[in-house]
């Protein structure tokens, strides 16, 4: 199917199969930050934003997001780097494979929730698995990042 996708504020004219998932479309267009960690919608590695909200690109049919704003981490590099530096200071981007999806969710959370508690943060990020870090350092980094925002 021919359609136009708005990815990171640029319009892409594409030909996608009706059963093509957004994750595959994005990777094929060179957005290689999109990673897949599962086949069952469980890991959150593939998180992108659709109209600013975090969504699993592995479970979202590409044709459905025509006309919506798609954002990958490539599209928000300055903010992503800002948080990534805090994450790296904690060593909590261990293998880094889960990090782009995790960072997309963290920044979406920051945009969506005001002064989240630790429990709110855990709940918001429940869909982001990480096998390396044990999550504690990620939480420390998030708190530092959010504190920076309050200041």
């Amino acid at each position: 199917m021919k359609l136009e996708l708005l990815i990171n504020q640029k319009i892409y004219a594409l030909d996608v199969a009706p059963d093509e998932m957004l994750a595959d479309t994005l990777r094929s267009k060179g957005f290689l930050s999109i990673r897949k960690g599962c086949d069952t919608s469980c890991c959150g590695l593939c998180t992108v934003w659709i109209d600013g909200k975090p969504v699993l690109s592995c479970t979202m049919l590409s044709f459905r997001v025509a006309g919506k704003a798609i954002t990958t981490i490539e599209g928000i590099q300055p903010e992503a780097e800002k948080f990534a530096r805090i994450l790296a200071a904690e060593g909590s981007e261990q293998c880094g494979f889960c990090s782009p999806g995790f960072i997309m969710t963290v920044i979406a959370m920051k945009n969506e929730l005001k002064n989240p508690t630790e429990q709110d943060i855990q709940h918001y990020l429940a869909g982001n698995l990480c096998r390396c870090t044990g999550y504690m350092g990620q939480m420390r980094a998030i708190k530092t990042y959010l504190r920076g925002e309050v200041q």
């Binding site: 919608s41 469980c42 959150g44 998180t47 659709i50 909200k53 975090p54 969504v55 699993l56 479970t59 979202m60 969710t105 709940h123 918001y124 990020l125 429940a126 869909g127 982001n128």
Partner: peptide, 12 residues
């Protein structure tokens, strides 16, 4: 519904 996986999944 809040127990079902994560926000990204629930948005799908």
């Amino acid at each position: 519904v809040s127990h079902i996986l994560g926000v990204q999944f629930r948005s799908c």
